[in-house]
């Protein structure tokens, strides 16, 4: 009887671990996305972009 109880506990516990493990980490994904977007678009981390890109960039390639 005791043995059945112990087995029962593990039957419940092991899938619980697996569930935690494969759960999509939404918050971590957002953080990762922000970091990459800041780098690709060259934004200052954590800041919303300026209304216009005008000041810091040289005019957008009119030389072509």
């Amino acid at each position: 009887m005791k043995k059945i109880g112990i087995i029962g506990v593990f039957v419940l516990l092991i899938p619980a671990c697996v569930t935690i493990n494969i759960y999509f980490p939404a918050a971590a994904a957002e953080k990762a996305a922000d970091k990459i977007i800041d780098e690709v678009w060259q934004l200052k981390p954590g800041e919303e972009p300026p209304a216009r890109p005008a000041e810091s960039k040289p005019a957008d390639a009119p030389a072509n």
Binding site: L13, I14, C17, V18, I20, N21, Y23, P25, A28, A29, K31, A32
Partner: peptide
């Protein structure tokens, strides 16, 4: 072992 490993991966950043 299973518990500690799942904790680590749940808390870690991508």
């Amino acid at each position: 072992t299973l518990f500690s490993s799942s904790w680590v991966s749940a808390a870690a950043d991508l």
